[in-house]
Design a binder for these strands. Structure first.
Lengths: 236, 236
DNA sequence: TAACAACTTTGAACAAGTTCAATATTTACC
DNA sequence: GGTAAATATTGAACTTGTTCAAAGTTGTTA
């Protein structure tokens, strides 16, 4: 039903990868300027100086281009965040870095992000937020949050769940970012700071033995629902 | 850019509303049987014994049909839930009713719900989850949760925020439902019961004066972000 | 270098959502 | 009953994502 978004498995010629990248760049430029819907594959092909069919040689579908963009985002995000972790002194700084760098990467690409979100609710789609097709990318991002938490002293149950929960928070923030029409998406930045501040300041309370029963109950519900595995399809 | 999903404002002839309903029924039947993507407007027109153009006379676009479906869902949901409230003894039963009836209405329509969710991330789209175009429907649903809470003794700050928060929970549950491939979506039912159980059982703790500072902080963050107004566009 | 295979490119054709000018039908009013 | 305005209906045409068979190009091997 859906085509996978991944690249061809066959060997290519010298300039091929370069052409592919050029098509991608061209497409993204047009998406940014005119929006995803508004940009035609004929536009892309023309701007890339290719025939329509040739564009399809490099990307099996229009959304595959968006898929490739998301690959890039994830890669870049991990790189930027890891870089920021180097000089980040404490948990607060690491969490802020993890979230802000994500927005940094996509600051000018809300148009494209919109196209990406479109398939979130279709479990079998290659771009589904929680689908199996995006598991690897999700994993990378979740691991990043695990890294941000690395030095923290946490009860075991919380330690397992926290990265997934932070990933969920991060998805919510992306959704907010999508709707955020404040100039430069300042409100999203503020929301990130506020949310991180809250998480950091209340982590002592959150992990206190007093709240253990409450915590336990929430985690059981989430685990039962299959939401802690890797936050993937509710039915693994 | 987008067409509104609402009905024509012009007066109609006697059978018109009936025909419109018939087109809607026909379309929904086909959507349910074959999926949204797989159902062609030509299929719909043929099944409704109309020409292609005539179908467009009743609905300005394919997604407008989904929009009309959602109108129906909301209406039905409110009716069912209110009915259930009549005989519901306590908060637990009212919250369960509010959530279960929503799933009841859409039990066999996950295909259609998928199409509906597709536009959630596009602020200006008539079907955007948090967009201005769906404000009225959102309002109805939020009010329903307010009703479920009616008899409860709650601190003022919580009272204002709770319905919106429950609505957000309800959106999350819909997303889960979308991905839930367990037979009859039993897992969604279980998740609802578990979530409601948790909310009801911990409401004493949640509103305790001890946690007031924590609560205050969360609410301030959400209010600052514009997420409590009616959970609409982050920038109202 | 010739021949072959693998990789690229092309443009025509197809499917499906959407538009629209033309036509048919109904209703309102005289 | 006749007629004009309003409402419904039609199907052809347009746009855009996608497919594909054919043709062009490049690298490899004998």
């Amino acid at each position: 039903m859906f085509k996978t978004a991944d690249r061809r498995a066959v060997p290519q010629r010298a300039g091929s990868e370069e052409t592919r990248r050029m098509v991608l760049e061209t497409a993204l430029t047009l998406f940014r300027r005119n929006g995803f819907e508004e940009t035609t594959l004929r536009d892309i092909a023309a701007a890339a100086d290719l025939s329509l069919g040739a564009a399809y040689y490099y990307f099996p579908s229009k959304e595959a281009i968006v898929g490739a963009y998301y690959d890039y985002v994830q890669e870049k995000h991990v790189a930027l965040a890891r870089g920021a972790f180097e000089t980040a002194g404490d948990l607060r700084e690491r969490l802020r870095a993890a979230l802000h760098t994500k927005i940094d990467v996509m600051q000018h690409d809300r148009q494209i992000l919109r196209a990406l979100f479109r398939y979130g609710g279709e479990p079998d789609h290659p771009l589904a937020w929680f689908g199996p097709a995006t598991r690897a990318q999700r994993r990378l991002c979740i691991d990043l949050f695990a890294e941000a938490l690395a030095g923290e002293r946490l009860p075991e149950d919380v330690r397992d769940a926290a990265p997934v929960l932070l990933w969920t928070l991060h998805m919510g923030i992306l959704l907010y970012f999508l709707y955020d029409s404040s100039t430069g998406q300042r409100r999203t930045r503020r929301l990130i700071d506020a949310a991180v501040g809250f998480v950091v300041d209340t982590r002592r309370v959150a992990v206190s033995p007093l709240l253990r029963p409450v915590r336990r109950r929430v985690l059981n519900i989430l685990r039962d629902a299959g939401l802690l595995v890797t936050a993937e399809a509710a039915n693994a």
